[in-house]
């Protein structure tokens, strides 16, 4: 574990806490893409299959349980909670995310570290995570003004993988044969997808104005 990876995991945890806070405090999920939340639940389920078979550390196990439980709880909340589900922007959240699932799964069949179910699902979860934010970014562009908590949620979500890139650079420099091409390349693409959001988020912060993404 290094400071970059710890910062990344804590930022990721913070993004989930901000999202839970937004939904719990406002009893609303307006501006949140259910499709992105479903993709994240799939990412964690596909990636943490080794939860019960490979023990890495107490920290690793606890974080995996927290990520799986929170992502499923958010999907449940947006689909079934009587009060919250009414505020879901169903007509705005129209990104065809099944193409993202299919495309990344095929890519994982072709590009993986080993042709085993667990490795294919791990690569699938890495590729899917890279594009999972797309329905959310599209929804933000369509819904015009973005409420603060939603903006912070997306910002921390993008920032966490940027910390992981620093972690991979650090591990590459300090560990003799450290190479994680699938995670590294996918992580760079993932962080790149947030580039325009980061730009508009910075502008809104500098001008102290409401975050607005151009349609």
């Amino acid at each position: 574990m290094n400071i970059f990876r710890l910062a990344g995991d804590m930022t990721h945890l913070l993004s989930i806490i901000v999202l839970l806070l937004k939904i719990y405090a406002t009893k609303s999920c307006s501006g949140i893409s259910l499709k992105t939340q479903e993709l994240y639940a799939l990412v964690f389920l596909a990636r943490y299959l080794d939860l019960f078979t490979d023990f890495i550390s107490v920290y690793n196990t606890i974080m995996k349980v927290v990520f799986i439980a929170s992502s499923l709880a958010i999907v449940w909340c947006m689909r079934l909670h009587p009060l919250v589900k009414r505020s879901y922007d169903k007509e705005l959240d129209t990104f065809r995310h099944y193409f993202l699932i299919g495309g990344t799964f095929v890519l994982a069949l072709v590009l993986n570290e080993k042709f085993t179910l667990q490795e294919i699902l791990w690569a699938f979860s890495i590729y899917l995570e890279a594009v999972a934010i797309l329905p959310q970014l599209v929804l933000l562009q369509r819904s015009g003004n973005v409420d603060n908590l939603t903006g912070q949620y997306v910002f921390f979500l993008g920032a966490y993988r940027a910390f992981y890139i620093l972690n991979w650079i650090y591990r590459y420099l300090t560990e003799p044969r450290f190479t994680r091409w699938i995670a590294c390349v996918s992580g760079i693409v993932q962080t790149g997808i947030y580039a325009d959001f980061f730009y508009y988020y910075f502008i809104s912060w500098k001008n102290n104005s409401k975050l607005k993404l151009p349609a």
């Binding site: 990876r5 990721h12 890495i56 570290e113 080993k114 490795e119």
Partner: peptide, 10 residues
């Protein structure tokens, strides 16, 4: 065959 990388990251 070659072993895959250890999945020690979240």
């Amino acid at each position: 065959g070659h072993s895959s990388s250890p999945k020690d990251e979240l």
